[in-house]
Nucleic acid binder design. Sequence first.
DNA 1: TTTATTTGCTCAATCGTTTAAATAAATTAT
DNA 2: ATAATTTATTTAAACGATTGAGCAAATAAA
Lengths: 340, 340
Amino acid sequence: MKRLKDIAQELGVSVATVSYVYNNKWKEKRINEKLVQKIKKKIKESNYKPNPLGLQLKTGKTQTIGIILGDLTRSFNLNILSGIEKKLAENNYFALISSSNLGEKEIQHIETFLERKIEGLIISPQKSENYEKLVKIFEKSKIPVVFVDNYLSDKNIDFVVSDNKWGSFKATEYLIKKGKRKIAYIGSEKNLSALNERFDGYCECLKKYGFKIDERLIYKKIEKQEDMYEGLEDIFKKVKPDAIFVESLLYFKYGFKFFYENGIKIPDDIFLTGFDPVDLNLSEIAEVHFNLVVKGLIPFIEQRGEDIGKKAAEIILKKIKNKNKKIWKVFIKPELKNFK
Amino acid sequence: MKRLKDIAQELGVSVATVSYVYNNKWKEKRINEKLVQKIKKKIKESNYKPNPLGLQLKTGKTQTIGIILGDLTRSFNLNILSGIEKKLAENNYFALISSSNLGEKEIQHIETFLERKIEGLIISPQKSENYEKLVKIFEKSKIPVVFVDNYLSDKNIDFVVSDNKWGSFKATEYLIKKGKRKIAYIGSEKNLSALNERFDGYCECLKKYGFKIDERLIYKKIEKQEDMYEGLEDIFKKVKPDAIFVESLLYFKYGFKFFYENGIKIPDDIFLTGFDPVDLNLSEIAEVHFNLVVKGLIPFIEQRGEDIGKKAAEIILKKIKNKNKKIWKVFIKPELKNFK
DNA sequence: TTTATTTGCTCAATCGTTTAAATAAATTAT
DNA sequence: ATAATTTATTTAAACGATTGAGCAAATAAA
């Protein structure tokens, strides 16, 4: 690879001159137009690209953005990543990626990132317990940070998230319009904005249509996939719902087990909907010796991961370049799939 | 962040001295033991970490490995990535990741990687058409390269792959021992080592048990998921198999559609097995208006992605450090799941 | 003609490290 | 007492870029 120095030598000029030409600063530096052309030609011929290391050391800019997302086997996260990458690549930026599967190593990852001089950070926080610490680190580091998927309502930090409230409102409304009257809600207790707002949307919709919220239909104690079974058991023991809204259908596996064992058919006996596409690993569900009967489509709310990622990257790049103080709060409407 | 210079100033010594101490070279440099202790203490106190940019520029080492894998929504690839990351992190190395979804941008990605001064490359080639070009680039770049998933038998390039032949031999043997006599093979035509060796394993096993290979039972023209339907149709038209070995069950979706529409039950009417876990997106399969009946477990061959990734990272690191010329050719036996 | 200004380019410091070579002081050998 | 050696540390160049300041030479103004 040729260095600035090599090109300068070949043309018998100084390194500085070549640098000015390469960086389009020859006008203010009043380099002779003819020389400029000569240098430009040589630069092109030798396919010169500045050594990023020299450049980085000098400017302190690494053209690198740190990315910390949750479980990448979840396609939503992967889509976010893909969106981020595309946008960054367009702008000659790079992604340094760490998946903080359980939010446990978030802090540690960030510190390594900072050592590596990332210019910005896109993070999807997975554990609300870490929030305080995270925010402190961000404030100290002074690099732009954009949250995705979840955000902190009481802090002035940019974010790009799904319009979760809108999505669950719409889904609930859909169920109501289908004539459903006993709509159960199953979710977790994690204190994450995305999940809280899904519940809010459900409640608001019920209220709007004049239904009151029935505590017997609500189960918000899901911690691991297996709990889905218990959750349904718990609700059905108290009152038989005619529809179920699930915080995330992604891991509904054990819900189907419950349906199967109790002879509950979709959609004849119950309407099922929720966020995220159902994802069944057949080799796994087969473990429960399964007869799965599904007729027709399961409606679900699909989040636009790629758009979220793109937008987040766009914001980070803007903040790096302009250093303006505007705080972006972006909600991206998810898609309603199979709602008919 | 403190620099070497700061520490040196605070102690009234030169930068070099501190550097020698930090890098454990004070013995050969005969730095006074007491001073060494003082400096070490200060280093610890101020939590000094060398600025990677300065270090990188000086040494030319970026502590970064380029990773190019195929479709990351495929959990196998994700597992490889996860394995690589773990190993690299243990050794203070970083991963620069690019997923070359269709192998189209492989070349371009590699060139950007090289500009960024990666010290090594782990790649899972997705298109045999690119092989020649790839190999040329590698030879020119002189950085260590390790292939995963697929390899080039005629080149001397390290690789870590599943023992695909062993896996399909075992699976075929399993079917034979279950009394199956008409075992179909469904696969693609891509010229990739992993896929070729799966077919080899199938053939070898049949031969070993004294069966001859029946062309009517073999369909190797799968290009996209939908082709699975046609493939089965094609085979069943000629001769009704009692078992099917599928190159990868991951996208068997349309196979189930065929079974459903023709009233074929697993495992009563047919035995199904192959590489990779079946992955059904229920929201998608519902599109074909599905009644899926699965009784019991579907046996499948699960590749040890994480182990492959770890091993590949290990090899890369070794090659970077030792510069030895040994070529590693590692086959990792996959796991036989639900074979009973 | 002298002075001021513009033009056109080079010098040299800088970023944070590493490391060969130089140097000074202390010790040992002659 | 002088020279040679060992010990302990510093100096300075280098990696590859950027960039403010500096310096001639050419041109314009006085």
